[in-house]
Design a protein around this nucleic acid. Sequence first.
DNA 1: CTGAAAGCGCTAACAT
DNA 2: ATGTTAGCGCTTTCAG
Lengths: 333, 333
Amino acid sequence: MTTVHDVARRAGVSIATVSRVFGRPDAVAEATRHRVLAAAGELGYAPNTSARALVRGRTGYLGLLVHDLANPFYATIAKAAQLEARHRGLALFCADYGDRPDEELTLAKEMARHVDGLLLYPSQPADDALRAATAGLGPAVLIDSPVEGVPHVVMSTAEGVDQAVAHLAALGHRGLVYLDAAPTSMFTSIDRRRNIETSCARTGIELTVLGPFSPGFESGVRAADLVIGEGSTAVVAFSDQMALGVVRRLTERGVRVGADVSVVGVDDIWIAAQVTPALTTVRMPCAEAGAAATRLLADAVDHPGGTPASRVVLPTELIVRSSTGPVPHGGTR
Amino acid sequence: MTTVHDVARRAGVSIATVSRVFGRPDAVAEATRHRVLAAAGELGYAPNTSARALVRGRTGYLGLLVHDLANPFYATIAKAAQLEARHRGLALFCADYGDRPDEELTLAKEMARHVDGLLLYPSQPADDALRAATAGLGPAVLIDSPVEGVPHVVMSTAEGVDQAVAHLAALGHRGLVYLDAAPTSMFTSIDRRRNIETSCARTGIELTVLGPFSPGFESGVRAADLVIGEGSTAVVAFSDQMALGVVRRLTERGVRVGADVSVVGVDDIWIAAQVTPALTTVRMPCAEAGAAATRLLADAVDHPGGTPASRVVLPTELIVRSSTGPVPHGGTR
DNA sequence: CTGAAAGCGCTAACAT
DNA sequence: ATGTTAGCGCTTTCAG
């Protein structure tokens, strides 16, 4: 391993100058700088990251902790976070707590030791306990977990769901079934359910909440039978995966989706646009969330005394496709 | 920030003892250890990772570089790698090179500065150039890139594709169309195409290769029309996404998938099991690959003079579902 | 603009 | 079993 000493000797300067060339290049005369750079090039020198981190008190690393890295929802957040971090000269650790939500905090604590700041998508409720837990971790930004006093970015389904309900109402639907998902204590669940409630109340649509189900395709399949039983003309599901399950089962039972029953999902996963009928859904801005959170975190790391607790709310939008249509003739509610 | 000195003072021991308690606990008398641990607990002490890395010459970090973190294929690899790394007390950096495959090596080089070893899923061909590029990066394990002299783990479609061809042959199909995907220089493409060729040759199935297409749903849609034009009774696609596109278009044009034409995909993405008809496909062991590669890398890092270049070949398997069926009556090829 | 020197916090001989 | 000590490679005052 080549060090500042090797480069210094070769370039005929002191180690301090070598250090400056890589740390604050403009503090060095151009001629000297070139000489040092040349020597460094020949020797294949690059500053040792550990040594630099030690003396600077900054690692240049950020950490991301989510529920499931293989899930496109989180993976998209991770990808965007990683990109944004790189643009700022930072690197990103990625980890997920998978089946062990109880280990979430342990993991966060462990990660915190290695990084300048943490990006957290908690499975815990956004309450005081989370704030307390977050307190000892150093700079942290929460995603989809609006905890007062802690910077966070949330994807709000308010607009998207509102548009969905309005869309359904405009199509003549008088009522709808919402398929809720567990864990109901997560912001994601709360947000979607609450927005459905207020939108329906405001629009005068009769709302029936079913569930909570485990999120996922199979739950949608099971829920579809309930929906048919209810005689509903419209259903909004917690996620596209559930909605797709509903569509599948409905079709299987001879119910024409988009004609007899309208189905709306949330997330806008890629397959939603490709199935038949194409799924009407609320798009979640995962990439934007990942990037925004990283930006917030990087800023917090750079300015330890900055805005105490920034808050970013990302809007959502309804994508209308073919799984929704006019209420069938003679349809009751 | 609390340091060994703080803890040492509080516990009435030397800093060396504190260090030992956290490094080689059994080298310290039980009583002393407890005293130190207590002091550390009260002070909230944990060893500084940068200082430790500096003196040890090891960061305890691994890096993963893939094409697209948001793609479930790579995301699954990442998730498994991360898990395996954690089990070994290591942390994992994740990055992708996305649209800029040319930046792949730059990124790898940058990452290499921060880690003990690299996990690479290259978009470059598995040739001498890659071996050369890899040489200067320190310990590295390649995924799906069998470069001689560099440790690697590959997911071979040999068995899966063989089973697929045999399956089709057993159903009476006399020929099949293979839908190739770009970039054709990647091992993934080469492997699938070559295995199809040898399997067909051995089985006496007439093979028609179409493409290369860009991988993805839309390509499948376009390719389907070609397939119909060919009058083929069976098609194997590079990926499930493409296969799904084929199914969609075939259905749209009144061709009954699984009856008139059989379709086989590769990957076994979750939706493959849920569409109608459910897709027959070759399962790719992404999680196993991520875990195996991480294991290999961790071992290489631990034993710098270990087995020169280990090689793991992960087998694949055909999952038969409903998109394949007997060749239609009177069907030629 | 450049160099000398003092650590950053920790580990690993080497003593005791 | 524990303490002393010498750095790991780098950045950063402080002089010059």
